[in-house]
Structures are given as C-alpha cells and as structure tokens.
Design a protein around this nucleic acid. Structure first.
Lengths: 216, 216, 216, 216
DNA sequence: TATGAATGAGAATTCATTCAT
DNA sequence: TATGAATGAATTCTCATTCAT
C-alpha cells in the first residue's frame, strides 16, 4: 500500500539519479499539462528537464511509463491527503465535507495536476486508462466506505454506497473540469459551499444549520 | 427534426454528394469508435466509406473537422431527444427523471458512441475540447433551466441552478464512464433507479413514493 | 508568324467561349504571378476566373499548357511593341534606345507580366523553359539583326551581334529583376538614362551628346 | 578558407555528425541538380546520402532549409574565389576580366551547379528567392566597389557603379543561362573574349590592345 | 459547354525509440 | 549514467486530372 512511487528498477538509485528522476517527472507534468499527452514529445520533456532524450529513457522505459509514473505520484498525493483529512475529522457527518475540501483545495492550487487527472489521462491509451480507473475507484472506495459506515451508524438512510460515491466524485469532477476548461467559476473555492450542500443532500445528510467554517 | 445533419459548407451539395457525405460520416463514426481518434487514420475512414482519401478531404477539410462534424451531429441527436423528452413530460417533478432516462438509454444502446464522446474526445485537441465543452454546457443549461423553473414553481428549495445542473451532469457522466471503462454495472439500466433517487435528492425533489415505471 | 495566340482546338470558338478563354488567361496571369507556377493551383485559377475547374480544363488541356498560352500571349505583346518601335524609329542609332524604352516601359507598367517572364517561367518545367528560351531568342534576334545592320552601315565597330544582343538583354533583364524583387530603384524609369548609356557603350555606339527626350 | 561550410545550428556537432552533415549536403546537391528543386524528394536525398529520412531532418529542419544551406555553401565558394581573384590581380584595369574569368570557369566546370542556382532556384519559393537575390546583390556589390575605385583612380569615366555592376552581372548571367539552356555556345569559354570586350566597353575601360592571355 | 465531385499517387514531416560513444 | 545522433514507420494533406451529369 505504501509502494506508490514506482522505481523503474529494483536497484537503489544514487541520490543524484533520484533527484534527476524527480526533475524529469516535474518537467513531464508541465509538458503533458501544456500540450496534452499525445502532442507532448519526449524531446520537450527532455528539454524541460534540462537533460537529454537518452536521459529520460534511462529513467523511464517509455512515454507511457513516464505518464503512468506521474499519475501514480499525483494519485498518491491526493489519496494521502484525503485519507489524512478523513482521519483527522472525528465527526462522521463532517467527513464528506472534509474530503471535498481537500480535493477542491488541491485542484485549485495545482491546476496542472487537475488537468492531467481529469482531462488528459482518460484518452491517453488503454494502459493509462486502466491505471486512472483504478485510482478513481480507489478514491471512490474511500468515500464509499465512509458512506457505508455513516449508514451503519444510522446517520444517513439506505443507499448504494458505491454508486453514491461515484456520483459524488462525478459531480466534483464536472465542476472542477468546467472550472479548468472554461474558467468558471473564476475561483474554484466559490463553488465549494453550494457544492457541499448539494453533495450532503445527495448522500442524505441533513444541511448543516450552523456552518462555522465556511471557508474552503 | 430539422437541424440534425449539419452542413459545414454553405454550398448546396448534389444529392449524390450529400449521400456520400453521410456515408463518410457513418464510416468515420465506425472507425473512430473502433480505433480512437488518434489511432484512426484518414485512410481507414476513406476505405470504410468506400471512397478515396481525396473524397474525404473534399467533404471535410481535415481529420479534426471530420471529428467535429461527427460530434455535432451526435450532440444534436442527444440534445434533441432530451429536449423532446422534457417537453413530453408534463409533470415538472418528472422532468429530471425523463432526461436521465433518455441519456442513459441512448448511451446504453450506443456504447461505442458514448466511449467516443465521453472518453476519446477529451484528448483530441483543443478545438475539439472546446466544442465538447460547449456541448456539455448546452446540456447542463437544459437541466439548469428546468431546475430554475422548478424553483420558481416552489417545487424545490433555493439552489444555484447552474451548479446543481453541472453536478447532476457530472454524476451521470461519471456513472456512465465507469460503466464504459470498467463494465460495472454490467447493464447501465441497473443503475438508473438508484441514480435517479440520488439526483432527486441532490436537487431537493422529494422521493417518488410510488414509482410505477421503475424500468429504464 | 501571326499565329501567336494559340487556339486549343482548330474549331472556331463562340464569342462567349473566346471571352471566357481570355478571362481564364487573365486570371491565370494574376494567380501565377502571385503564387508562382508551382504553388499556383488550378483551383485558384478557376476561382479567379469565376469559373469551375472543369471549365478551365475545357479551354486548356492542363496547367502547363495554360502557362504556355499565357507566355505566348505576353510574348506576342512584347515582340509586337518592340518591332513596331524599331520600325517607327528611322534613325539607326536610336533603335537600341527605342527598344530599351519599350521594354522598360512595358515591364514597369506590367509588373506581374515581368515577374512571369523573368522569374517564374525559368523554373516551371522543361517544356516551358523551352518555350521561354525561344521567346528570349526571338527577342535577342530582333536586337541582333539591328546590330548587324548598324555594323554594316558602319555605325558601330566589329562585334558578335548575337552575343552582344544576349548581353544587352541580360543587362536589362537583371536591372528589371532587381527592381522586381528588391524594389530598387523604386521607379524603373529612373534607371533608364544611365542604362541606355551603358548599353550604347556596350554595343559601341557613341554617347548621345544632346539627349532631347530623356524621358522614358 | 575560413567560413565555407556554414553551420546553421549553433551547437557543436560531433565529428561523425559533421561528416554526415557534409555527406547530406553533397547528396542533396547531386539530387537537386539531377531532379530540380521541386521534383527532388527528401527520400531521394536520404537515400543518396546513405542515411535515413530522419537523419536528414535531424540536420536540416526541412527541404527548404536544406536547399538554402546548399545555396549558401556554393555562393560562399563563388564569392570567395572571385574575391581572391580580385585581390590577386594587381592591375586595376584587369580586375573585371579576372572576375569574369573566375565566374565563367567555375560555371563551365560545374554545369549542374550553375543550372541549379541560376535556373532552378528561382522557382523554389520566396525564402529561397530572397536568399538568391541577396547573393546576386553581394556579387554585384563586389563588382561595384571595384568600379567605384577604378573611377576614383580615373581609370574610367563617370558612371553609376551599382547600375553598371548590375548590368555586367546581368550580361554574364544571360550568356551563361543561354549556354545552360540552349547549349550555345557549346563551350562557354568561347564566349569569354568577346564578352570581356563588351563588358570593358560597358564600363568604359579601353580595349586591351595586346591581349597576351586570351584563353579563358 | 460547364460543373461539382471524385480520384489517387505522392509529398513532407513527425517522433518514439534505439544505440554508439 | 548520460548524450547526441540516427532510424524509419506512419500520417496527414495536396492537387493535377478525370468524369458523370
């Protein structure tokens, strides 16, 4: 469960190499975001990473693997933060809000990462699709398990946790995508309170009457 | 019934040519769904349309334009059917259900088409992304206007119709995408009743106590 | 000698057709001048002539033939005017000046025609090269014969009339070409008096001490 | 001897690559002369250079750039030789003859090259035309500066050095072109003595009474 | 005569990947 | 480890020409 940042070889990398590997990933994120998976070229990645094409190929066996590594790295970040937020929120009824906050905050501050996840990855080829889907499912499962628990606790009425989680994820996904691609709302945080209310209703949680921390 | 087959050129085509143009679009749909936007080649399209490469280029100035034409044609179909369903449903409270039914039914029966437009299209270049986004927004606007009316009629409580419509669309979109990519649920129709309930709650409609036609 | 404007068929053309044929030639001149022989397309010619591609092909068997016809038409004009000027100039010593005047005046007022002749035609394929060369030789022969006569009359010293005529033509050619392509001198006429002096010297004519008509 | 093989890229090439770059240029010269600019294909160049198409594109960004590089390389050779000949001829009155000799000799011994740059290049597109024109002007400027000095030295009478140089260049150009295209005179050297006489007269130099080395 | 439509042989160019230093 | 050079299959698009109405 911990092995999220994949190493290309099982050998231990020198610190220098590890550093370069990270630099390449950073560069790849920038390039894939700017140009899209298909349009991005390994040349561009190499140049952005201030290395050579051969150098990129030393660290990653190919373009697809590079994208995949990027995806994993980013997914780990998102999942970790979400999990942490869920753990830190004792109130069962507030967990959904907490997760939403984490996601919106992360995407709002890493627009490029959002683009990569929500837009590019879907159509970058079967292998990547597979990986992306797994990540999405892992994320939805996180929500689903909280929903299941909430239901057991009698906090919410009967529902299909999987489907509800998927629907929640989709609602967030679309709001973020519209923000990404059409720039509306200008600030993603604006949409947070209303979206929170909608999602609470969707899963059957009562509206929070007193919203003490309306900030995102 | 009117504006379904869009004519990108303002010139009047001879009947023969009009026929061939449609044949090319049909062939293109088949090829794009089978191979994906990027993998599909104009050669394949030409062959599938039983015409020459030049013939395709006579009717469409390029690959992107061809895809766009296809996108518009299909989007028009989806939007038109949805609009029709909304008009045919007198009960304001049932309109959302009706729209959902149309979309799920259409996608369920045209899985390839759904895959093409929900998944492939995202990575087909900025112009197509732009067009796709516009279509999504048009669709969300359809829902939003119904929500706005429902609110005026006092059927639902106060909400941001735009955001709620976007969230609804996203929820549907994600359920369909999961079905497309992971094959679960096996039958999209299975998810319909529960999804309907979730969306009704999301927008603030009361659950239908007596659901006489629970089938999709 | 009179058959300069070639008719594609030996049949007599209707006035309408003759008119359209001219319109196509005019359009072709414009297009070839603007785009160059290779870059120009038959579509462009057809559009410029406000007719269809098929229409162009009715009047001319192909692109090369079209260019050739244009070349012949223009050459006829140039040669006719030059010949006329030579005949109208009784003074043997003034004939060279007269020819120079005609050429510079014609090119200055038909820049596109000059471009066609001096720049495009050379590299438009063997058949056209052949034709162009014949025209150039015809023109040089005109000068050469005058030089030969001048020599017989003792007006100028011994020289190779062919070579001298070629050199004269080349000198003019280059001056016009530089004007065409680099725009210097701004007005071709500016160069006329000095060029006249140079050419007179080249062939061995004495400088005209009193230049009564220095205007081009 | 210095700036002969121009490096379009500022990067330092490995010796192997430098070698191959030259090989590609040589191959390109052969192909372009044999087939003409437009008819020549990059495939042919690659094959003639015993490399791959990609290899050619690694060194030159495109067909036009390849031709341009070739043009510059050859022009540098011509200009360098001419300049050298001018420097080596102490007698101011003999400089024009020396330049003429160099040019005629070079073209006579490299007919294909002459054809390529005097005839083909004209129709190779605006960028190449521009470059070609610049070269012509550089060459004419060489002559012009000599003419200006000769005039200062009182060797020749008043004239416009620019125009005279252009005219000289044009005369030579035309004689060479006629030789190239019509094959007359059979040997370009035949025309040298008479052409020399004509040009001397054109610029106002006295005929050399005793021509000790009338051979080209 | 004229037209719009169709053809199809080719072209230039791209780029993921490999490899010799 | 890293690099620059090289590869070559694959792809989009062009356009002179032909042809059915």
């Amino acid at each position: 469960m911990a092995q999220l940042t994949n190493q290309p070889t099982s050998q231990v990398l020198q610190p220098r190499a590890r550093e370069r590997r990270e630099r390449i990933l950073d560069a790849a994120l920038a390039v894939f975001t700017r140009r899209g998976y298909r349009e991005a070229t390994m040349d561009e990645v190499a140049e952005a990473a201030a290395t050579s094409k051969g150098g990129v190929y030393f660290h990653f066996p190919g373009k697809e693997a590079l994208f995949l590594a990027l995806l994993e790295r980013s997914a780990a970040l998102l999942l970790q933060r979400t999990q942490l937020a869920l753990e830190r929120t004792p109130d069962p009824a507030g967990k959904l809000d907490a997760a939403l906050d984490v996601v919106l905050r992360l995407f709002a501050s890493h627009r490029d990462l959002a683009r990569l996840f929500l837009v590019e990855a879907l159509a970058a080829g079967p292998a990547i699709q597979e990986a992306l889907l797994a990540i999405r499912r892992r994320f939805a499962a996180l929500i689903a398990s909280e929903l299941a628990r909430a239901r057991e606790d009698g906090l919410i009425g009967p529902l299909d946790p999987q489907l509800a989680a998927t629907a929640c994820f989709g609602a967030i996904y679309e709001v973020v995508t519209q923000w990404l691609l059409s720039g509306s709302p200008a600030d993603l945080a604006e949409a947070a309170p209303e979206l929170r209310r909608l999602l609470r209703r969707l899963v059957g949680l009562p509206d929070r009457s007193l919203d003490e921390d309306g900030t995102l």
